[in-house]
Amino acid sequence: MATGRAKDALQALLEEIAAADAPEVVAQARAGAQKRARAVIEDALVDELLRAAGRRSEPKPEPRRPKEGDAGDAWWTYCILSAKDGRAVAPRLQGIEPESGVEVVAARGLAALVSRVPLAEYDDDRLREHLEDIEWVERTARAHEGVLDRALSDATIVPLRLCTLYRDLDGVRRLLRERGREFSENLAAIDGCTEWGVKLFVEPGRLQSAPVAEMSSADVSETRAGSEPSGADYLARRQRERALATHADELRTRCGEEIHRQLAELARESRVNPVQRPELHGREEEMLLNAAYLVPRDRANQLYEAVERLREEWEAHGFQLELTGPWPPYNFVAGQAGVMA
């Protein structure tokens, strides 16, 4: 009985404590549950991330790692073009490695321009090292571009990204067979065209000065009429500065858009890339437009003249236009990676 009563009392006490503690317990339980749920989610995420990382860093099963001193060759590929054009242009071209001529690999009416390179210098690890050496990159990029430029003067070409390498020519033939349709479509889309690059720059401070001149007279009279204390003056000035900055931003955008609109009319296709940061273009002027135009060869002269005309019109206002080309149509072939800002 006594024990029974004690039990009841204990039970009652527990219930009382539970009732009193309930909100806290619930809160604690919720926190605990959240913590556990978070842990479960974290674990799942960690697994997923590890799997993704594994997929990235796992060496590709395909390429056999050459042993030290393996004196094999690989084939550096430059571009895809019609087999007929390929055979016509290749004999005149010099590859990226000294004394390696450019050769043609043809299949199904298409061809790839390739040249032999020593595998020991171009396997995964060596390439990775080379790509950290800016002088190697520059030399190789200019040599690659040199081949494309000379091919471009007589043919329509689909440029390939730097460092596309094959172990043997069968791999290149397989590529032409497997992706032939896509390459043919690419070639048709860019047929007879080359790419031109146009950049627009503005001198520092130029876009601010025009609106300042046109707004300042109004501002001055306003300030005099009011003759407020300096705190209000300060606020008004800040407001004007903000308005000017906004105005300048709008002007920047409009200038770039206007020039692009006029040039795009002459192009079969156009593309606006992100502007380069000052450290990249190395100029004092601010870049407002970084565009590429796919222009039929017989209209290249018109583009050139349009740029000259725009240059004359705009240079007095502190704008500079830079035209480069003709480029292989890097910006107008499918399968390209996006340009990162």
């Binding site: 390939l160 094959y166 390459f183």
Partner: peptide
């Protein structure tokens, strides 16, 4: 910008 970010991207045999 053009050679590493433009052009057709092929897997290749050896390329990174």
């Amino acid at each position: 910008d053009r050679l590493l970010a433009g052009g057709v991207v092929l897997a290749g045999d050896i390329t990174l």
